[in-house]
């Protein structure tokens, strides 16, 4: 008798647990949906309410909302440039370090470095920006005679910031390549380097692709670190040394002064929505690349 009662009680606890879990996940899903929906509505008001053209937003270099110009090209290009720079420098470097830790470094070194690299991921971006501002910007200023602020500084800071992500994920990608492939290649008289270059890297390519894409995602969404060193001039950058703006840094710069319902506010929302779309696109890309591997 008591057993049956205990079982009934257990079932009640289980029902309660289920309700709590369902409620929490339901709340989570609704919040995300509302967030995306809100951003989508506000982010398109520029086109639906203000009747500006998407074409102007994407391709016009002139951004002066108080005079009716809402071209975000300078910010889009700024974001793309710094991200491309970060990936071009940090990507190959990060993959190389990841491969080194996975394949060549002595076990003790590799296992000591892994947590150290993961700590780097957790350093707040403002710290990276601060270091960039106090070390990198003066260095660039003194060597080149420019202001020091600009794409180069932001690109270097971002390269460093994405490094831990790329290193850590590409190391993981190399480690999941089965040993049988390593042995198969070496047993055919291949050197370690030939084995890495011709067998292991191709075998890990989708994992490394994911590492690079997540590096891109981290770079394109980064705000504070680059805002501190980018110079924040709303113009199309003329070169690596010229100040520029990115989508993220522009939103931070102008959001305080954007009146509710103003053209400026709607423009900023459109930029935020654009960033969201890019992020979603990258996530889809990650899924596609990962699925190709499986």
């Amino acid at each position: 008798m008591t057993n049956v009662r205990a079982a009934g009680k257990a079932h009640r606890t289980e029902r309660l647990a289920l309700i709590v879990l369902r409620g929490a996940s339901g709340f989570f899903i609704v919040s995300i949906a509302l967030l995306i929906g809100y951003l989508a509505v506000e982010g398109t008001k520029l086109f639906t309410v203000d009747h500006k053209s998407i074409f102007e937003f994407l391709f016009s270099p002139t951004f002066a909302p108080d005079q009716g110009h809402i071209g975000a090209l300078a910010f889009i290009l700024g974001s793309l440039f710094v991200t491309a720079f970060a990936i071009a420098v940090g990507g190959p470097f990060g993959v190389a370090v990841g491969v080194f830790f996975a394949e060549l470094a002595p076990k003790r070194v590799a296992s000591a470095m892994k947590p150290a690299i993961e700590v780097l991921v957790g350093i707040p971006s403002v710290v990276y920006g601060w270091l960039g501002l106090t070390l990198l910007v003066p260095l660039i200023r003194n060597t080149t005679g420019s202001t020091g602020f600009g794409l180069l500084a932001a690109g270097i800071v971002l390269s460093l910031m994405i490094l831990p992500t790329v290193v850590s994920l590409s190391e993981d990608a190399m480690r999941v390549v089965p040993d049988s492939l390593r042995e198969g290649s070496l047993a055919l008289g291949a050197t370690r380097w030939e084995t890495i270059w011709r067998v292991l890297l191709p075998a890990a390519s989708s994992g490394i692709g994911v590492a690079v894409i997540l590096g891109i995602a981290r770079a394109i969404g980064e705000t504070l670190a680059i805002q501190l060193v980018l110079g924040n001039a709303p113009v199309i950058p003329a070169g690596l040394l010229s100040p520029a703006s990115a989508l993220t840094s522009e939103i931070v710069m102008d959001m305080g002064g954007a009146a509710q319902g103003s053209l400026l506010q709607h423009s900023l929302f459109s930029m935020a929505f654009l960033l969201l779309l890019i992020a979603m696109g990258l996530i889809v890309l990650v899924k596609l690349v990962a699925r190709k591997a499986a």
């Binding site: 089965p178 049988s180 492939l181 042995e183 198969g184 290649s185 070496l186 047993a187 055919l188 008289g189 291949a190 050197t191 067998v199 191709p202 075998a203």
Partner: peptide, 20 residues
């Protein structure tokens, strides 16, 4: 050892073709 493995080949317990 690379030369040794060139002259003495090995076939493993489980087939291990490269993903190529």
């Amino acid at each position: 050892p690379v030369t040794v493995r060139h002259r003495i080949g090995m076939v493993f317990q489980r087939p291990n073709p490269f993903p190529k």
